[in-house]
Every structure is written in structure tokens, then in C-alpha cells.
Design a protein around this nucleic acid. Structure first.
Length: 426
RNA sequence: GUGGCCGUAGCUCAGUUGGUUAGAGCGCCAGGUUGUGGCCCUGGAGGUCGGGGGUUCAAGUCCCCUCGGUCACCCCA
């Protein structure tokens, strides 16, 4: 008897996705890719780890994600590396490295790692779908990017998704705004929540984002980003709005919307799934980041993108009964009562012919094999017993339809299966 | 990182105030049907009661630690 060992399990905050759930993921990624490729976005594959500096300089040293949530490590060459906590910084690093011609449009699907306390809708490894588009400040690009996400949710069948937008200004107008906000908060310091009463000065924008009722009330009349935008930012935002309206993309202005990473400028947006609990209902978000390319060592290049959290998106789909797991099925399941060689040969022939086929192993009883055939979801059971073997035939038995069993010649079994399925469909 | 709740078969769960060999349903396997699935019947396999330590004559049950889950905060996808 081997000593029993403690079974391993997946690390905290991570999980396995097995079939058939994984088929839903696959379908989701395929649907996303198909849609954004129609708009000229190309898939980018990039490493899941980068020099730590890519994220530190990209997202900002002071952000929670960078300061306390990164999976950092040193490799055997003593390099400082980190597992990517989000996708944008890596894509922009790749842009800086390769300098593709602009406008450059890329989409990705990637795991993202953050060392946080797990809870529903929040994992230490989660997955994101996203796009990035670099090389122009044209507000029509903002409109395109926001619209892609919005249309994607609609295509999945989600109806209860709210789009919130705001403008965060740029290097010209944001500093002045932050000062006026800081001054306002100083006056209303006593009214803030416990945490922000002491710490509002470090990052005044964060206070707008605070969900504590005290902060919400105290900032109700605070200066607004949109009202302090410089001329170019205001003009840009106006064109983004009119573009969205022209395309019929519904949105609401959220004066409190300030994205968490330092790189955001101008357009900021988030999608909330109203069918989910408010605490973790953000299913996607993004914005413009006109200074990020420079921050990572490239030439001044504006850009915009968004990321969608796959786990949360699927939770939202569950909550709305949308985008069900696609049924995986087989064309045929071979039941071999002669030892297994026939099943080996026939499944290979069928698969080579492009049909989906499986079989049972271990010389199980006819009943057991039929049961397995039923469970496999196959349309047909192909039965080979001593009779068929002697006659050079295969019995075609329908598992999902009331149809007569028939015998077909063994040497043209693939064609016979194809024909039978064809006939059944017409 | 802080706090609350929870961990019993693959899954969903029972398990009296600590008391003999830990149960059910579903699933799985086999037989009833020597070559016909889904329904039914019968039987079977499968658990060091998350792990470790402690209290006790005796621990699934009480205590401590630890791992994991979950919820809230924080932050975000």
C-alpha cells in the first residue's frame, strides 16, 4: 500500500475550469475575437511576466495594485519580474519595442494576477479580454473602442449593462482640478469618512470614488472634472459624446468615475452589470492613456483601450440567463463488442473524415458502452458485434431520434454516417 | 492586509447534550436483459469527517494552530 499523501489543490484564489464549462470560455473568446477582428484589431500574444518596472511605471507606483498586489519575483538571473496584473502595460511595452505603424490596434486574452483576498468575482488569477488602439487622439477612436465593448455585451445577450463615462482631463487641466478638489475637501474635511478624513490629500480623486455615504454626501457639491476641463479636453469629450449618441450607444455621465491607474487621461469609462451585486459588478472598463507610451520609453503616442473580466462577465451572463454553455456533441460513438480493434479503426476513419467520434475502452458490456454512448451526447451509436464483423457491416443506431436502425457496409462507414446525419437534418 | 461565517463520499447534504463498525440522495460500477442507452429493481465500490496538535476513558462533535472556501472592508475585472 502506498502511503497516502495530502492531495494538492489549486492555490488560493485560483480555479480550474473543466469541460463543459471551458467550452463556454472558448466560445466567449472566439466571439470576442471575431467581433474585434472585424474592426481591424489583431491578436497580440505577449509574456505573462514582465520586468517589474513595466507595471510600476505604467500603472503608477502609488496604486494599490502595484504597491501591494503584484506577484513579484526574481529569476535565476536576478532579474526583477512580475506576473502581469493587467494587460495594458504589456501591450504598450510591446508597442514601444516593435513600433508598428499607427494606428495600431491589438486585442488580447490573458490571465491577470493580483495578490488580493479572494471573494466572489475576485480571484488572484482572473482573465481579461481587451483591446488597445494607439496612435491617434481622434475622438472617433474613443467612440469605436467604447462601442466595441458595448456591442459585445449586447451580442452575448446581456441587457442589464450600464455604461458610465467621464473625462479625466489631461496634463494641462487635471493638476488645477486636483488642486481645487483638494481645497474643497480641506473645507469639508470633517464630513469625510474615517479613512479619507486623514488621507484625502494624498490622492483627492480617490475620495470621489469612495462608496462611504459620508464621502458621497460630502462631495456632492465638489468641483467636477467635466467643468474644469481645458478647451481641447472639453472639445474632445464633446465629440466622444456626440459620436456615442450618433451610434445609439447609451451611456450616463458619472462625475465620480475616476479610474484606478495613473495612466488614464481624458475619456474614462466603465461597464457595470446591474444583475450582479454592486460590490463586484464592474465587468469592464478602460480609457484613454495619452502619456503611457512615453512613460514606458516610447515616442509621444496617444492610445485608448479597455479590459473585460471574463469571470465577472460570465457571472453576469449567469445572472441574466444569457450566453449559455454551448452543447458539445459527437456525431458518432462506436460500440465494439468484438474486442476493441474495430472501434480503434472506425473512430480513426471517422475523425480523419472530419467527423466527431469517440468510443468506449476496456471491453465493456454492450449495455455499458451504450450508456457511455448516450452520455457522450452522440447522435449515433455505431455497433460492431460478431454478426456485423462476419457480414462486413456496422449497425447504425439512433440515440436521439426515433429512427429505424440500419446496417451499412463497414468499408464506407464514414460516408454512411455523413449521409445518415445529412438525411436526418433535412 | 483586517473581520464574520463555513470545511463530513465525485456532488448536495444528515449526523441527537462528545459514546460502539460514519449515513442518505444524486453520480459512478456491476447484475437483472449471454448484443441495445434513457425508466425500473438489486448489489457494489468510494470517507485517515480539509490537515496538524491538544482536552477526554472516549472527538465528526470541544479547544488551539494551519490550509481552503465564502461574505464584508479595501481595491478592482
Amino acid at each position: 500500500m502506498p502511503q497516502q499523501r495530502q492531495a494538492f489543490q489549486a492555490p488560493a484564489g485560483t480555479r480550474d475550469v473543466l469541460a463543459p464549462d471551458s467550452a463556454r470560455w472558448e466560445a466567449l473568446v472566439v466571439a470576442f475575437g471575431r467581433q474585434v477582428e472585424r474592426a481591424g484589431y489583431g491578436l497580440i500574444l505577449s509574456p505573462v511576466f514582465e520586468e517589474t518596472g513595466v507595471f510600476v511605471r505604467g500603472m503608477g507606483e502609488g496604486t494599490d495594485v502595484v504597491s501591494k498586489e503584484m506577484y513579484e519575483f526574481r529569476d535565476k538571473g536576478d532579474r526583477h519580474l512580475a506576473l502581469r496584473p493587467e494587460g495594458t502595460a504589456s501591450v504598450v511595452r510591446a508597442f514601444v519595442q516593435h513600433r508598428p505603424p499607427v494606428v495600431w490596434k491589438a486585442w488580447y486574452v490573458t490571465p491577470a494576477f493580483r495578490y488580493e483576498r479572494p471573494q466572489a468575482g475576485r480571484y488572484r488569477q482572473h482573465h481579461q479580454l481587451g483591446v488597445e488602439a494607439l496612435g491617434t487622439e481622434d475622438p472617433d477612436l474613443d467612440v469605436e473602442v467604447v462601442t466595441l465593448a458595448s456591442r459585445f455585451f449586447a451580442e452575448l445577450g446581456l441587457s442589464r449593462v450600464e455604461l458610465k463615462v467621464n473625462s479625466m482631463g489631461d496634463a494641462n487641466c487635471r493638476p488645477a482640478y486636483i488642486e481645487s478638489l483638494r481645497a474643497y475637501l480641506e473645507e469639508h474635511q470633517d464630513e469625510l469618512c474615517d479613512e479619507h478624513r486623514e488621507r484625502y490629500a494624498a490622492n483627492p480623486l480617490r475620495v470621489l470614488d469612495c462608496k462611504d455615504e459620508a464621502c458621497v454626501r460630502a462631495t456632492a457639491n465638489a468641483p467636477r472634472l467635466l467643468e474644469s476641463l481645458c478647451g481641447p479636453c472639453a472639445g474632445h469629450f464633446g465629440r466622444v459624446r456626440s459620436g456615442l449618441e450618433a451610434l445609439g450607444v447609451e451611456y450616463t455621465i458619472d462625475h465620480r468615475l475616476v479610474r484606478g491607474f495613473d495612466y488614464y487621461t481624458r475619456t474614462a469609462f466603465e461597464f457595470a452589470a446591474l444583475a450582479l451585486e454592486a460590490a463586484q459588478n464592474g465587468i469592464g472598463g478602460g480609457g484613454r492613456y495619452d502619456g503611457l507610451v512615453e512613460a514606458l520609453g516610447g515616442p509621444p503616442t496617444p492610445g485608448i483601450g479597455f479590459a473585460i473580466g471574463i469571470e465577472r462577465l460570465l457571472q453576469a451572463c449567469d445572472a441574466e440567463g444569457a450566453f449559455p454553455t454551448p452543447a458539445t456533441t459527437l456525431d458518432a460513438f462506436v460500440v465494439d463488442l468484438t474486442g476493441g480493434a474495430a472501434a480503434r479503426d472506425i473512430t480513426d476513419e471517422l475523425r480523419t473524415a472530419g467527423l466527431r467520434a469517440d468510443r468506449a475502452f476496456d471491453r465493456r458490456s454492450a449495455r455499458a458502452q451504450l450508456k457511455a454512448a448516450d452520455r457522450s451526447g452522440a447522435e449515433l451509436a455505431l455497433i460492431v458485434g460478431p454478426d456485423e464483423a462476419a457480414a462486413g457491416t456496422v449497425t447504425v443506431h439512433w440515440l436521439r431520434a426515433e429512427r429505424e436502425e440500419e446496417r451499412v457496409p463497414r468499408h464506407e462507414v464514414a460516408k454512411a454516417v455523413r449521409d445518415a446525419l445529412e438525411r436526418a437534418r433535412s
